[in-house]
Simulated scan of single mutants.
Amino acid sequence: MQQGMLSSLLLSILLLGTGLPTLQAAEMQPQEVKQWLKDTQLQDKVAQFLQYAIEDEVDTLKFSLERLALPQQEIARYLLLKKIDQQSIFLTPKMALFVEEQQAMAPTYQVLERGDGYEFSVPAFNYPSIASRILKRWHQNQSSLGFKLSAERHDLVLKDWLSGSAYQVQAREALLISEVDSLSHSAITYLNHQLTKEAVTSWLPSSSVMVRLAQVSEDPELYSLLWRMRADQNVVNELERLARVADNFSLKQVMQATGNPSLKEPALKALTQVKPMSEEVKTFLIARMSLADDAPYVAKELASQGYHSWLEELANSNQGVKSRLILSAIGQ
Rank of each mutant, 00 (worst) to 15 (best):
K275L: 08
A315P: 03
Q256D: 02
S208G: 00
E173R: 07
D116F: 06
K197C: 02
K45D: 11
Q86P: 02
L112N: 15
A76N: 08
Q256M: 13
V99Q: 11
A257G: 06
P205M: 11
Y118A: 06
E27T: 05
E280L: 05
Q256R: 13
V235M: 04
L80Y: 10
V321G: 07
L158G: 03
Q103F: 14
L204D: 04
D160Y: 11
K197T: 11
D44W: 02
Y190G: 05
M277T: 03
F120R: 15
L6H: 10
Q319M: 05
Y127F: 14
I89K: 03
L91I: 07
N318D: 15
A257W: 09
S309V: 08
L15A: 01
R172I: 01
F98Q: 14
S224A: 13
L149R: 10
R212I: 07
L162E: 06
M289C: 02
K252W: 05
Q24D: 06
T201Y: 03
S88V: 08
Q170G: 05
S163V: 03
Q48K: 14
L11T: 05
E280T: 10
Q194L: 14
Q102W: 01
K136S: 03
L23M: 08
E74S: 06
Q305I: 07
W138M: 03
Q102E: 15
L81F: 13
M105Q: 12
I188F: 01
G17P: 01
M255H: 08
Y109D: 04
K148Q: 14
G117A: 01
S184E: 10
Q319R: 13
E55R: 15
A257P: 09
E218P: 01
A246M: 09
G19P: 02
S186N: 13
Q273H: 15
A243R: 13
A151E: 09
D116M: 00
P261G: 04
P266A: 03
A270W: 02
D39W: 12
R244K: 14
E100W: 08
A187N: 11
L204M: 09
L79P: 10
L251K: 07
L314M: 04
A292Y: 11
A69D: 10
Q140M: 04
A166W: 06
R137S: 13
Q168T: 12
S278H: 06
H185D: 06
A267C: 07
L23T: 00
N192Y: 00
S144E: 12
T283S: 15
